[in-house]
């Protein structure tokens, strides 16, 4: 009886050790990331951002604006999904790519981004305007604003779950004219999460 118990315990330990996966670094841009139907995964924000930037650059939108450089203000991007995440996971990636492309510079002294990202710059700007009597109208103004929504749609058939995440973005001029709009849908189907895609 003792031998049987000892044997079973040793076997269970061995089995446990062989089944567990030790932590390791993986490439966040690689295809080893976990794919989970129940939530938007990091790589999907990157996929959506890459697609959106490709679409913006492929459109004549930046060529149409005569004033150079083009200043972009990040307006409201609403998360209308059932999950809680920071929309900067999408917008920051888009901003970085546009900035690297040399097409756009982001203005952080306007809009909701200013309070969160560049409060110091905004305060200094206001101080200059007050002390040096700088005309607030002379402040750099954005040519374009980026706004959008992230939506979610879910369906189920037996054990199979399906989740679609819809990324909608618009570039709008200060006159309110949407000069570029696009929508990217990412759909996942499955019954459980998996490693790699």
């Amino acid at each position: 009886m003792k031998h049987l118990l000892l044997g079973s315990a040793a076997f269970a330990t061995l089995l446990g050790a062989s089944c567990s996966t030790p932590a390791a670094y993986i490439d966040p841009n690689g295809n080893q990331m976990i794919v989970d139907v129940d939530q938007i995964n990091l790589q999907e924000f990157a996929m959506a951002a890459d697609n959106m930037v490709d679409s913006m650059i492929d459109s004549p939108v930046f060529k149409e604006i005569e004033d150079r450089p083009v200043y972009l203000m990040i307006d409201k991007v609403t998360n209308n999904t059932s999950q809680r995440f920071d929309v900067d996971l999408l917008t920051k990636k888009i901003r970085v790519k546009l900035n690297k492309s040399g097409q756009v510079r982001t203005l952080l002294n306007f809009g909701s981004a200013a309070e969160a990202e560049a409060p110091g710059a905004r305060a200094l700007n206001q101080e200059d305007e007050f002390l040096k009597k700088k005309d607030p109208a002379a402040r750099k103004r954005p040519n374009l604003t980026l706004s959008g929504k992230i939506l979610e749609d879910r369906a189920r058939s037996g054990n199979i779950k399906q989740a679609s995440y819809i990324f909608q973005l618009s570039l709008t001029t200060l006159d309110g004219e949407a000069i570029w709009e696009d929508e990217k849908t990412i759909t996942k189907q499955g019954s459980k999460s998996r490693v790699g895609f």
Binding site: M47, D54, D58, K97
Partner: peptide
Amino acid sequence: QWRTFVMSGRERKSLTLVAP
């Protein structure tokens, strides 16, 4: 980032890629 592309059987598709 790696992106996913799905094609049905015997399907032909175009894929456009823009330089960054």
